[in-house]
Design a protein around this nucleic acid. Structure first.
Lengths: 193, 193
DNA sequence: ACTACATTGTTGACGGCGACTACATTCACT
DNA sequence: AGTGAATGTAGTCGCCGTCAACAATGTAGT
């Protein structure tokens, strides 16, 4: 029976489900997520989520898309721009990426799950990795080459740092030290100069 | 009622469950895995797996451990040794890693899932990344520095290539091209020489 | 050969889940 | 005021993981 404080229409159940799920992913896994439990938490019936998401898969895909939007925003906010120089710029973007990953490990996993995501995503940042490399090439900070290809290599390495840092497979150590090490290896190379 | 071809004792149900699950992970996801369905496939009752794994979590952890063992073997088999030179060695190891990842995407995801794995793992290869870097330093192919730190940066980058290649977030392109690009970026650096 | 115990099965039940159906309530538009 | 869309509810089904009690077989000791 509805009481005064619980009207029949939630108002914005779709957004509430996605927000609550993102919160729960901070402490749990995708496997722990239950649409029924989310519906209970939000005070609606177990079938109400089906009015907004045809199935669990669609719900997880929407959650992943929201994650990409938040990551894009975080990277855009963290980007100091080309004027800062390549190394500080890469470290700033890398730190923002790793901060997002360590704060939302299960959401990151969902974002990169091939099957759950369904569709591809261009990757992080409003000023994308291609632009970072192209800017740096224009300033003589990166050698000649296809910016898209170099940018993908760069993104792969940064993603690797983030992925390893949240997976627990690293033996101790500080993730920021690893990030700096990786960025410097990419800039200067491992070969003796 | 048991027939002659179905004795009461399976004989090696534990191994059979892990093998069948690894097979199913080639085409499905961890979420699709069902202990009951595996038991049905193997001709035992739904509760038989509980005699080998206390719960689903323990089963997934055992599956992840088996995955690490197989990855270690694949890398050991692919390693041409220090004598091949650093670049060919990194490409060989990288190709084996990516081959494993693209052949077993869901298993790789399980191996790196922090929560499912529970315990940490030292990472790939009988001759680990530290040894690869130390060997190369001894031959003058890598600059001075902590081999463990440089090795972790190397592993992060290679893992990033593998992870991006199985997640579907890359826009087209050939993963081997990305691997070569990344290895060369790490060896020579992105800065102009 | 027999006995006892361990190992590894079976059967049944429970509660939670996702998905589906039919119906109910509210909102927005005309 | 009426209508259709949007968004809820209540109920059901089948599957799942987990648990308990019992059954069959294998192994070790005597």
């Amino acid at each position: 029976m509805r009481t005064a404080e619980q009207p029949y229409h939630h108002g914005d159940l779709r957004a509430a489900l996605l927000d609550r799920a993102a919160q729960q992913l901070r402490t749990g896994t995708v496997a722990d997520l239950s649409l029924r439990a989310l519906a209970r938490d939000l005070g609606v019936s177990h079938a109400a989520p089906n009015r907004h998401f045809p199935d669990r898969q669609a719900f997880l895909a929407a959650l992943a898309r929201a994650g990409w939007e938040r990551l894009d925003s975080a990277l855009a906010a963290a980007d100091p721009g080309a004027g800062a120089g390549l190394r500080p710029r890469l470290l700033a973007l890398g730190r923002a990426y790793v901060h997002f990953a360590t704060g939302e490990p299960a959401l990151l996993e969902l974002m990169f799950a091939g099957k759950a995501a369904g569709e591809s995503h261009e990757g992080p940042g409003l000023s994308g990795p291609d632009a970072v490399v192209a800017d740096a090439q224009a300033r003589g900070e990166v050698r000649a080459g296809d910016p898209a290809a170099l940018a993908t290599a760069l993104w792969a390495a940064l993603h690797g740092v983030a992925a390893l840092s949240v997976s627990g497979v690293l033996r101790g150590g500080d993730v920021d030290v690893l990030l700096v090490q990786t960025v410097d290896a990419l800039l200067d190379g491992l070969r003796p100069r």
